[in-house]
Design a protein around this nucleic acid. Structure first.
Lengths: 120, 120
DNA sequence: GCGACGTGCAACCCTGGAGTTGCATCCACT
DNA sequence: AGTGGATGCAACTCCAGGGTTGCACGTCGC
């Protein structure tokens, strides 16, 4: 399930929904800490069943946050920073955009305060 | 509902869950575009009821993404970039952390390849 | 004061998704 | 070959939360 190149909007959407779940975030932390681990091992460090972990990993994989590497009868997952970084940049530019708009609106409001508008 | 100073973890959590909902993201875009608007006006530009918008605004407010300003009988909301920016930074540093760990692990793996490990 | 507009509150559906259990399947190892 | 460990698949439960409706409350304008 590492295919399908989505547009930036869908990418951001999937990353955000993936990151919204606390269990998934814990999973990511575990993965980042331990490198390449199987779902079964990950489940041992979490208060949920292996199946739940597998489902979460599928979501994270779809969001591009992790990748699965099959080795014989076991599948090891590892973290993939690119998608996270992309979303971080997107978010940061969004914040900058808001800042610009806010500054502009504030400037307009101040101008209108000492200069009564033409509308009654 | 603009009080309670949460730790960084809770802050990130609330921002992420707030951003996970598509309707809430549309709300934020509307707010960023139009400046200071009331919930009723916002609801006109969305396919949901005013009450739904109010609930979403409450969530966004709790996450620190918007603020409410009461003026007479109407309440105008506006976007607040600080919380978004903070989460963006957090996310970015997390990605950098993953990158470091990945590089380290890859380096170890390569070293172990030409140098058979002591475990049988 | 009184009507109208805008909000706040509460109770209520209903769907998505997080989690579980049980079993089938596959692969390594002896 | 056969056994045990690891993954995959499917059906099922359960509840948080997104959405709605109806009404009460406050505030502006006349």
């Amino acid at each position: 399930m590492t295919e399908e190149v989505p547009g930036p909007a869908e990418a951001v959407d999937s990353v955000l929904t993936a990151l919204a779940d606390p269990t998934r975030r814990r999973l990511l932390h575990l993965l980042a800490a331990r490198g390449e681990v199987t779902a079964t091992v990950l489940a041992e460090g979490l208060p949920v069943s292996r199946q739940a972990v597998v489902k979460h990993l599928a979501v994270l994989d779809a969001a591009g946050l992790v990748t699965a590497r099959r080795a014989g009868r076991k599948v090891r997952y590892s973290v993939q920073p690119a998608a996270l970084d992309a979303t971080a940049r997107w978010m940061s530019s969004l914040a900058a955009d808001w800042d610009r708009r806010l500054a502009r609106i504030k400037r307009l409001a101040e101008a209108a305060e000492q200069d009564p508008p033409p509308q009654p």
